[in-house]
Design a binder for these strands. Structure first.
Lengths: 216, 216
DNA sequence: TATCATTCTAGGGATTTTCCCTAATAAAAT
DNA sequence: ATTTTATTAGGGAAAATCCCTAGAATGATA
């Protein structure tokens, strides 16, 4: 019997090691590769061609969402199981569009992760029970129909939003980026229009989903 | 030979399970109790009287710092090993004052956690190598000498700071708390004076250390 | 190739928010 | 009984943000 070959992408070493122990304790699964950021995850998958990649959505360099999009382009056969700390559904929608097969909350029981791996390995998709109703709540499906693509911020826009979420003022951001305050304001306004958000709270929420506020 | 009896306090189930597997895979250690928040951790320790508690500093309800202070009052013999995501040292200082025996970064290798448990079980203290120099950098020891006690915010002050970190404006906070904007400003100013911080960035950093920005 | 959309840049002026200083009342500590 | 702390809040000055407009450069499209 062949074991399921799994690559693990998660930036916290201790957490990753814990998941590895859990997965390797299953008779039919095996962690064959690891990565601590999105870019490394893609390289690892290209090199090893695993059955499944288990990926944290909040990772430095290239976050889980973007990594998923790119992965499904270069290796459409590899199934992506995303792991997250959040219960917010804005991200969920995008992940499904990007081609993820499953979505497990870190808060869930470890057996759920194992179950999810088995389920998606059979070609099905897995949604954490805590999230299923969110997807069928109407809001998400509407945005599918609209076909809107949020999250396509330019680098500068993302940079400005990130710093705003971190509590920097426009003036401080302008100084750090060596541009005018007016330019910062413009990037901010454009980014907020693209994301269809209005307030600083929304920026913070978005930043948390992006993993921008992890650690320092 | 008696195994080291360990209680684990960490709010993310998957992470906790990973650490448990790691600890239980050691011949001389055993996880005898678990908790997913600070209050539960204290109850668990009082009930089980373990040798060591391994505790995440960012937990809901009662954070690791406050839980450590309280633990050292009710069970001074129990050794506290704190686990964190951050490399910031402001918190470190407070944890040492509160009576924690050790401080391990989640980013570190899992074997570091095991080492740390062994070291503090012998009555010594353990500091993650990444942090040792911070403690001896001068800044921290000065504040020890001054004997200042940061972090003693009142409930209202903490509430205001938390909301500011979340991106709410003073006006929005005033509306939510049903008080005048002027009062919000006063709480904010007093809290910042107590913490000796100046900017919104510092508020966000503080909030992240408190675990206030975890999840939703 | 010519045209259109997007990105990055930024100013003017109105509006909103925040900052600094002061202060009253009630509760808690000494 | 006196002092300190917590919560509340105003006035006026200063700072930051918002709304509108716009040019230059790059990239895409017809």
């Amino acid at each position: 019997m062949e074991k399921l070959r799994i690559v693990l992408a998660e930036d916290h070493l201790t957490v990753r090691e814990g998941i590895k122990l859990l997965v390797n304790s299953q008779p039919d699964m095996e962690v064959i590769g690891e990565a601590d950021n999105g870019s490394a995850a893609i390289k690892e998958v290209q090199k090893l061609a695993p059955d499944i990649i288990v990926m944290d959505i909040s990772m430095p360099e290239l976050n889980g969402l973007k990594a998923t999009r790119r992965l499904k382009q270069v290796c459409p056969n590899v199934k992506v199981l995303t792991l997250t700390r959040h219960t917010d559904d804005a991200y969920l929608q995008q992940l499904i569009e990007a081609g993820a097969s499953g979505y497990v909350l870190k808060q869930s029981a470890p057996t759920e992760l194992i179950r999810a791996i088995r389920i998606i390995s059979e070609g099905n998709s897995y949604l954490d029970p805590a999230l299923t109703n969110k997807l069928f709540g109407g809001y998400a499906s509407r945005s599918v129909l609209r076909g809107e693509r949020k999250g396509d911020l330019t680098d500068r826009e993302a940079e400005v939003l990130r710093m705003i979420a971190w509590g920097y003022s426009n003036k401080e951001i302008a100084a750090k980026m060596n541009i005018s305050v007016k330019t910062v304001e413009a990037h901010k306004a454009n980014a907020m229009r693209k994301l269809d958000i209005r307030s600083r709270i929304d920026i913070v929420r978005y930043a948390i989903l992006q993993g921008w506020l992890q650690d320092n």
